[in-house]
Lab assay of single mutants.
Amino acid sequence: MGFKLLSKLLVYLTASIMAIASPLAFSVDSSGEYPTVSEIPVGEVRLYQIADGVWSHIATQSFDGAVYPSNGLIVRDGDELLLIDTAWGAKNTAALLAEIEKQIGLPVTRAVSTHFHDDRVGGVDVLRAAGVATYASPSTRRLAEVEGNEIPTHSLEGLSSSGDAVRFGPVELFYPGAAHSTDNLIVYVPSASVLYGGCAIYELSRTSAGNVADADLAEWPTSIERIQQHYPEAQFVIPGHGLPGGLDLLKHTTNVVKAHTNRSVVE
């Protein structure tokens, strides 16, 4: 069995187990497998329904001669939608809004960016022009300005110390501490036991640490421990890039980060 097929099978099995364990909360999309990078042309966006009122959005972007996937989250909030992270750029984010209108038909009224990198804030200006209120932590807003990236308009308070959590509509926002970046936030959907790890969490097929220019490698494993301790009931975990899975993604990420750190020390 090929690795790609095995990865998709694991996603399907995880979703099936969740649907059985929580039949009222989960209505997993039966329309197909989780979209992969090879299936999404740059400039297009796919939506994948995880649970009743919960979707991931998947886009792709060219970077350094390669094409990478990027995940975000959409959560229903009454007759409105909360968006977590842009679709990595203005063109993708405009396509995301169009796809949401086509498939869901509810307005996106608020959006949260989970850290300051372009795959999370690139497209904020498109959201703002569409009347979406954009939010991020003060740290993310400051770092985005320093980096020359787009800056969300509103500040999220109460997320300055490791372990801080605040309720934001249908989700809980959690600051686990520094990891992929010093400002990275985690998003949890309690009604569906869905954990969105953003770039602080890796997919299972990833074996290298990737972009760690703004990471705190020493603190990252401790931050992941905080996530595990705060959300032990999480059933569906979405990484910032690639295929979702279960809580095993947290341990896998820790292993990859520690291996990278150990290699760096040896070198």
Results as ranks from 00 to 15, higher is better:
residue 72 G to C: 02
residue 6 L to N: 15
residue 102 K to D: 13
residue 8 K to I: 11
residue 207 T to A: 13
residue 230 H to T: 12
residue 123 G to L: 04
residue 128 R to H: 12
residue 260 H to D: 11
residue 109 T to I: 11
residue 224 I to P: 00
residue 187 V to R: 01
residue 154 H to N: 09
residue 36 T to K: 13
residue 12 Y to I: 12
residue 115 H to R: 03
residue 95 A to I: 12
residue 18 M to I: 15
residue 222 T to D: 13
residue 16 S to V: 13
residue 26 F to R: 14
residue 152 P to I: 04
residue 4 K to V: 06
residue 216 D to K: 06
residue 99 E to P: 04
residue 23 P to G: 10
residue 152 P to R: 00
residue 244 P to Q: 03
residue 109 T to L: 09
residue 100 I to P: 01
residue 4 K to A: 05
residue 30 S to P: 11
residue 217 L to H: 04
residue 202 Y to Q: 11
residue 100 I to M: 06
residue 255 N to D: 12
residue 54 V to I: 08
residue 82 L to F: 07
residue 92 N to I: 04
residue 122 G to A: 10
residue 43 G to W: 05
residue 35 P to V: 08
residue 125 D to G: 10
residue 148 G to F: 05
residue 194 V to Q: 00
residue 238 I to P: 03
residue 73 L to V: 05
residue 141 R to H: 08
residue 153 T to D: 11
residue 81 L to Y: 02
residue 181 S to G: 02
residue 10 L to F: 14
residue 10 L to R: 11
residue 78 G to P: 04
residue 30 S to T: 14
residue 164 D to L: 06
residue 170 P to A: 09
residue 13 L to T: 15
residue 191 S to K: 12
residue 235 Q to S: 11
residue 185 L to D: 02
residue 38 S to L: 11
residue 207 T to W: 08
residue 250 L to P: 06
residue 212 V to F: 06
residue 172 E to P: 02
residue 236 F to D: 06
residue 25 A to M: 15
residue 34 Y to K: 08
residue 173 L to A: 03
residue 251 K to Y: 12
residue 93 T to Q: 00
residue 200 A to V: 08
residue 61 Q to S: 09
residue 103 Q to K: 15
residue 92 N to W: 01
residue 123 G to S: 04
residue 128 R to I: 11
residue 199 C to A: 00
residue 115 H to S: 00
residue 77 D to P: 00
residue 88 W to F: 03
residue 69 P to H: 15
residue 64 D to R: 08
residue 252 H to I: 01
residue 20 I to Y: 10
residue 238 I to M: 07
residue 61 Q to A: 13
residue 199 C to E: 00
residue 16 S to Q: 15
residue 63 F to V: 11
residue 30 S to C: 08
residue 241 H to T: 00
residue 68 Y to P: 03
residue 196 Y to G: 00
residue 33 E to F: 09
residue 142 R to W: 11
residue 253 T to H: 01
residue 139 S to Q: 14
residue 3 F to V: 13
residue 236 F to V: 11
residue 175 Y to V: 01
residue 169 G to E: 05
residue 41 P to E: 14
residue 144 A to L: 08
residue 133 A to L: 13
residue 135 Y to E: 00
residue 133 A to W: 08
residue 16 S to R: 10
residue 159 L to R: 03
residue 18 M to V: 15
residue 49 Q to V: 11
residue 166 V to P: 03
residue 168 F to A: 02
residue 100 I to F: 05
residue 125 D to A: 09
residue 211 N to I: 08
residue 111 A to L: 06
residue 226 R to E: 03
residue 16 S to E: 08
residue 26 F to Y: 11
residue 230 H to D: 06
residue 80 E to S: 10
residue 257 V to N: 04
residue 231 Y to C: 06
residue 216 D to T: 08
residue 146 V to F: 14
residue 184 N to W: 00
residue 172 E to T: 04
residue 100 I to L: 07
residue 87 A to Y: 02
residue 240 G to M: 04
residue 215 A to N: 06
residue 15 A to S: 14
residue 190 P to H: 07
residue 180 H to D: 02
residue 198 G to W: 04
residue 250 L to Q: 00
residue 159 L to N: 01
residue 253 T to S: 06
residue 44 E to D: 10
residue 114 T to D: 02
residue 16 S to H: 15
residue 13 L to P: 09
residue 74 I to W: 02
residue 12 Y to R: 10
residue 75 V to Y: 02
residue 26 F to A: 12
residue 146 V to C: 09
residue 160 S to M: 12
residue 10 L to I: 15
residue 265 V to K: 13
residue 159 L to Y: 03
residue 74 I to M: 06
residue 47 L to K: 03
residue 154 H to C: 05
residue 260 H to R: 11
residue 165 A to W: 14
residue 129 A to L: 10
residue 236 F to M: 10
residue 207 T to Q: 14
residue 208 S to P: 08
residue 254 T to N: 13
residue 64 D to G: 15
residue 63 F to A: 11
residue 55 W to Y: 08
residue 161 S to A: 13
residue 231 Y to W: 04
residue 29 D to A: 12
residue 238 I to S: 03
residue 48 Y to N: 11
residue 198 G to C: 06
residue 160 S to N: 13
residue 92 N to P: 03
residue 265 V to E: 14
residue 164 D to P: 05
residue 211 N to Q: 11
residue 58 I to A: 05
residue 159 L to H: 07
residue 123 G to W: 05
residue 113 S to P: 06
residue 219 E to Q: 10
residue 55 W to N: 02
residue 232 P to M: 08
residue 27 S to N: 09
residue 99 E to I: 12
residue 168 F to H: 01
residue 55 W to R: 03
residue 174 F to V: 02
residue 202 Y to T: 09
residue 54 V to Y: 01
residue 71 N to W: 00
residue 201 I to R: 02
residue 154 H to S: 08
residue 240 G to R: 04
residue 37 V to P: 15
residue 240 G to K: 04
residue 245 G to D: 05
residue 176 P to K: 01
residue 216 D to H: 07
residue 144 A to H: 04
residue 194 V to D: 01
residue 9 L to A: 14
residue 88 W to C: 02
residue 248 D to L: 07
residue 139 S to F: 04
residue 246 G to Q: 09
residue 81 L to S: 03
residue 175 Y to D: 03
residue 141 R to N: 07
residue 217 L to S: 03
residue 233 E to V: 11
residue 22 S to T: 12
residue 30 S to L: 11
residue 17 I to F: 10
residue 64 D to H: 09
residue 141 R to M: 12
residue 205 S to Y: 09
residue 104 I to A: 00
residue 52 D to T: 11
residue 243 L to S: 15
residue 83 L to W: 04
residue 153 T to G: 09
residue 32 G to P: 09
residue 166 V to K: 09
residue 206 R to F: 08
residue 54 V to E: 02
residue 172 E to N: 02
residue 146 V to Y: 13
residue 146 V to N: 13
residue 7 S to D: 07
residue 48 Y to M: 15
residue 181 S to P: 04
residue 177 G to H: 04
residue 88 W to K: 00
residue 166 V to G: 04
residue 140 T to V: 03
residue 25 A to Q: 15
residue 250 L to K: 01
residue 153 T to N: 09
residue 204 L to Q: 11
residue 132 V to G: 01
residue 110 R to T: 10
residue 28 V to F: 06
residue 117 H to N: 03
residue 23 P to H: 15
residue 235 Q to I: 09
residue 116 F to I: 04
residue 21 A to R: 11
residue 196 Y to K: 00
residue 205 S to W: 07
residue 4 K to D: 11
residue 190 P to M: 07
residue 258 K to E: 14
residue 11 V to K: 08
residue 174 F to N: 01
residue 215 A to D: 06
residue 92 N to K: 05
residue 257 V to K: 01
residue 188 Y to V: 03
residue 192 A to W: 05
residue 244 P to I: 09
residue 40 I to K: 05
residue 93 T to L: 00
residue 23 P to R: 12
residue 192 A to F: 07
residue 130 A to R: 14
residue 199 C to F: 03
residue 33 E to V: 10
residue 177 G to M: 02
residue 150 E to H: 04
residue 214 D to G: 11
residue 85 D to C: 00
residue 217 L to P: 07
residue 80 E to R: 08
residue 159 L to T: 03
residue 36 T to R: 13
residue 2 G to N: 15
residue 79 D to F: 09
